[in-house]
């Protein structure tokens, strides 16, 4: 078996392959639905209905997509430069920590200043958290996959320590949770009485900004060059290590915004279940979008829809909601195969 490079695919083909990957995912996971003794068509219908069948469902999907857009962008930026950031989960939690530290009354500032200050501080903290592994990679040659993965566990324990210590809400009846952020530090809701908040708007704006950085700036060009061929990039005079540092700051910062937006826009306080694995799902979101920042918005909404829809479905049909996680993981693998098929022709013999 051999792989032969193909000419660059047309835009139509490029869009067709994610759809093919999704179709393959549905086909594969329908086997599990059958194993659970349910009909795949009715289960997938219930998932779709639960994700987008009503105004409530749609708003819930967009709410769930918000953190995924941030973590998806974080992964897309990092992977583009081949900086394997698997630590978006940790960076998200650090963003949440910064939000409650600064947002519970420590800074007496009006909302229009306070919120940007918190956002920048959260981004800085998340960026610095990824800078560590990036420096270990460039200085010592330590694989950043393992260090970022291990940091996820360390940071979660660190957050647990804070929530049972200095950040513990004295009124929390003993639960490990922080105080609520003050009203001035809260992102308002987009529609009164609904859960969708302005974090979603921030996420969309971030996606556009990241798209501009990647496509229109020197940094974006350098990041792509480093990811494509680090030796070649070094040869033409691109400061590879410095580009990786900047990538780390940007990627970690974006992931931290997910934590900021969840605390400030949705939950109000920090708990240990702030994220049900948004950092890891962000990898899938980024890959489904083929690392395109604007595509991340679409794929985040899609992935969020699967999770929201599966929750609704499992209340009706007797299929465990973990089917959503299986679908998301499967779509990652079918997607990388689909991307391969856009670039190469498989020759048997």
């Amino acid at each position: 078996m051999r792989l032969e490079p193909k000419p660059a695919p047309s835009l139509g083909m490029t869009l067709l392959f994610p759809l093919a990957a999704i179709a393959a995912t549905l086909l594969l996971t329908s086997l599990l639905v059958l194993a659970a003794g349910a009909s795949p068509l009715s289960v997938f219908y219930l998932v779709a209905k639960g994700a987008a069948g009503s105004q409530f469902a749609l708003l819930e999907t967009l709410t769930r997509a918000t953190p995924l857009i941030f973590t998806g962008l974080a992964v897309a930026v990092a992977f583009r430069a081949k900086l394997w950031n698997i630590g978006a989960e940790a960076q998200l939690y650090i963003g949440g920590v910064v939000t409650v530290v600064l947002g519970t009354g420590a800074l007496p500032l009006p909302s229009v200043i306070l919120i940007p200050v918190i956002m920048l501080a959260a981004m800085l903290a998340g960026g610095l958290l990824l800078l560590g592994p990036a420096i270990l990679k460039t200085r010592f040659g330590v694989d950043e996959v393992v260090t970022t993965l291990l940091l996820n566990f360390i940071v979660l324990l660190f957050v647990s320590m804070l929530l049972e210590g200095v950040l513990k809400d004295p009124m929390g009846l003993g639960w490990p949770q922080s105080q609520k952020v003050i009203a001035d530090a809260q992102l308002p809701r987009i529609i009164q009485g609904k859960r969708l908040h302005y974090g979603f708007v921030v996420a969309i704006v971030s996606a556009i900004v990241v798209w501009v950085i990647m496509k229109k700036t020197v940094l974006g060009y350098e990041m792509r060059a480093v990811g494509h061929n680090p030796e070649g990039a070094r040869f033409v005079g691109i400061p590879v290590n410095r580009v990786l540092m900047k990538t780390a700051l940007l990627s970690g910062g974006l992931a931290a915004l997910a934590g900021f937006s969840e605390v400030s826009g949705l939950k109000g306080n920090l708990t240990l279940d702030l994220s049900p694995g948004y950092g890891y799902s962000g990898i899938v979101v980024a890959m489904l979008a083929m690392l395109n920042p604007l595509g991340v918005v679409v794929s985040a909404i899609f992935v969020a829809g699967i999770f929201v829809g599966a929750d609704a479905m499992s209340r009706i049909a007797k299929v465990p909601s973990y089917i959503a996680d299986v679908m998301v993981a499967t779509s990652l693998l079918t997607m990388v195969v689909a991307i391969l098929l856009t670039r190469f022709r498989v020759r048997w013999k």
Partner: peptide, 27 residues
């Protein structure tokens, strides 16, 4: 044979194996 990124596939296999396990457990 398909020469796909070992990083991405590895994480994908971890996510798949974990979620399949949890799904089966609940089932």
């Amino acid at each position: 044979p398909l020469s796909l990124s070992q990083h991405v596939v590895g994480i994908g296999v971890t996510l798949l194996a974990t979620s399949l396990t949890y799904f089966t457990y609940r089932l």
